[in-house]
Structure formats: C-alpha cells, structure tokens
C-alpha cells in the first residue's frame, strides 16, 4: 500500500520535473536565440578622418562611427550622433551653434552637453586615439553624457537663430 503511494508520488514529481526541465530549456534557448547579434564595422575601432580636418568652431559628421568630431581646446572629441533621449539622429545646427534634436526638441552644446529639452542626459562620447594623424574612434566603449542640469564645461552660448522654423 505505502509502496503504491510512494510510486505515485515519485511519478508525479518525475513528470513535473520533466515538464519543468523542458520549459526551462525552451525559455533559455529562445532567450539565447533572441540576443542581438554583432553588427559589422560599428561597435569596434573606426578609422575616420585626419586630425587637421576636425573643425574648431563647428562639427564634422563621421557616418561610419555614427558620430560627430569636433575640436575642443585643441583636443578631438567624438560625440555620438544618437540622441540620449529616444535615439533620433541629432543634426548640428550651424546658425545656432548647437545640436538640436528634431524629435522632442532636446538641445546640446558643441561638446554634446545637455542644454534644454526632455533629454535625461548629454550625448554619449567615444574614446578617441590619434594614430599617424588619423582620428580613430572606439565605438565599442561609449561614455554616457552627464545628467541634465550639470554645468556646461565650454562657454559657447547659442550664437544665432535656431534651425527649428516652427518652434517658439
């Protein structure tokens, strides 16, 4: 009699463990399969343009690195073109001398520091090396920008009209 019960208990535990195992295996493999793959080029070190070509008072876009290069106090800075708010590409506005995001109106200075708008922080920056006069951007290790409200470290106020026509 007791043997019967034990066997029943054993079988019950057995099939529950089996079903659980299959479930875990299924979830694990699904999870693993869905992980993002490595994308070619971007995500590693990207060779861009000669150091002399980096402007002092504006920025230059380097599409391969999805970044802008600009020179601040003689040092090359690579600013990610992706808005830290919601991922739109932030264009540089020549007339106002600042980055103006078209999606929700976030504004950043030339170094990518948050100036106004809904963005929680400044634009990310990539480490830069100069090898044989060529700027190499390491896109694998972005540094997040400082949170909104941090004092700007360069003194470059808005220099002209903003690029947004319809804005107030």
């Amino acid at each position: 009699m007791s043997e019967e019960i034990e066997r029943r208990e054993f079988l019950k535990k057995g099939w529950m463990a089996g079903a659980g195992l299959i479930g875990v295996a299924g979830i694990w493999t699904t999870w693993d399969v869905l992980q993002p793959g490595e994308s070619a080029g971007f995500g590693g070190e990207v060779r861009t343009i000669p150091e002399e070509a980096v402007p002092q008072d504006g920025v230059v876009a380097v599409p391969a690195a999805r970044a802008y290069l600009t020179s601040i106090d003689g040092e090359v800075v690579a600013v990610s073109e992706t808005c830290p708010h919601l991922g739109c590409r932030v264009p540089w506005c020549e007339s106002s001398g600042q980055f103006e995001c078209p999606c929700h109106g976030s504004i950043f200075n030339r170094k990518g520091e948050a100036r106004e708008g809904p963005t929680p922080r400044g634009m990310s920056r990539y480490p830069v090396q100069i090898i044989d006069g060529l700027v190499i951007v390491n896109t694998g290790e972005p540094e997040e920008g400082e949170p909104m409200g941090t004092a700007e470290t360069i003194d470059e106020p808005k220099r002209g009209p903003s690029c947004a026509e319809g804005s107030h």
Partner: peptide
C-alpha cells in the same frame, strides 16, 4: 531593447 531590435540599431534583424 536588444531582443526587440536584434542589434545596436534598427536594421535587417
């Protein structure tokens, strides 16, 4: 986000 878009940016994945 990674699972949703399958990469760094919106692409073929």
């Amino acid at each position: 986000k990674g699972i949703l878009i399958g990469g760094d940016t919106v692409g073929s994945a």
